[in-house]
């Protein structure tokens, strides 16, 4: 390096040498969250994560709807999307949310990039929220992608297989978004407690599948035990949405799970300081 570039550096006009604690722009919460979320989303599409998760899920949904057992779309022969709404909660709980969030914090801890991120003037809450919104955005892209099925099946220039009642479809999607808000939050939490993204994936997949599956058991458990299961089950909470009902208690339920696990992720990120 020449002294010329050096002079250049020193002559930068705003450089008042070693000014006392400079008053800098106060960090903007929203702007930082958006920047972090944007980078997250970008890295999903940069690695194969986004394509793999979206591809697998859409294919699986298609396969489940059109092929196989007695209840496939062709066999039932009705203009309905219930089949998709049976399938997607399981996919989101078992694969999508864990797959999308597994790297979020765990991989950054492992590779050390978290240190560089957190030593920038960002709040821990901005990091968590940014990562959450980044992951959630990818899930929304996926859900939007799954809309291709009803559109292709029941609208004019395409197959137009029948007259679909769109109301349960929209409420079903609302339910899926709420369910995803909760599931992604759970995934993010498990990613924040380990440095190993595979461990994060299995922990959140297991937890979310268990929370979903207990919905299946609800019918067979009598009394208050069944009530409790129904209360915590992702599946029972989701089902009304697929039928066109918007259950306000379920909305509260999903948002509460999201909030609780976001707070837990935040705590977990903060706890690095005291390790």
């Amino acid at each position: 390096m020449t002294t010329e570039t050096n002079a250049n550096l020193l002559d930068t006009p705003e450089r008042a040498p070693a000014a006392p604690a400079r008053t800098l722009t106060k960090p903007s919460f929203i702007a930082n969250v958006v920047t972090i979320a944007g980078r997250e989303l970008r890295s999903y599409f940069d690695s194969l994560t986004a394509y793999v998760v979206i591809g697998i899920t859409l294919l699986a949904v298609g396969g489940f709807m059109f092929m196989g057992d007695d209840e496939s779309f062709w066999k039932t022969d009705r203009a309905t999307m219930v089949r998709m709404f049976e399938m997607l909660p399981w996919m989101i709980a078992g694969i999508v949310a864990p797959g999308v969030t597994m790297r979020s914090v765990a991989e950054e801890k492992r590779s050390g990039t978290l240190e560089l991120l957190i030593t920038l003037p960002v709040r821990d809450s901005e990091v968590i929220l940014g990562k959450y919104i980044g992951a959630m955005s990818l899930v929304l892209v996926l859900l939007a992608g799954s809309l291709l099925y009803p559109v292709a099946m029941f609208t004019k220039p395409f197959w137009n297989l029948g007259v679909l009642d769109w109301n349960p479809v929209w409420s079903g999607y609302l339910g899926l978004v709420l369910l995803s808000l909760a599931a992604v939050s759970v995934g993010l939490f498990f990613s924040s407690i380990t440095e190993n993204q595979i461990v994060a994936f299995f922990l959140s997949s297991f937890t979310l599948l268990a929370l979903t599956a207990i919905g299946k058991a609800v019918g067979s458990v009598q009394g208050w035990g069944g009530d409790v299961l129904a209360f915590v089950s992702i599946l029972t909470r989701f089902q009304p949405f697929a039928k066109g009902l918007i259950d306000i208690r379920a909305v509260v339920y999903f948002l509460s799970i999201a909030a609780i696990f976001l707070a837990a992720s935040f705590r977990s990120l903060e706890s690095r300081k005291w390790s």
Partner: peptide, 16 residues
């Protein structure tokens, strides 16, 4: 943190 620049050991950057 606004007042400092930090380079951690081994420069862990977002490689993508």
């Amino acid at each position: 943190r606004q007042n400092l620049g930090y380079l951690p050991q081994r420069a862990p950057l977002y490689t993508e």
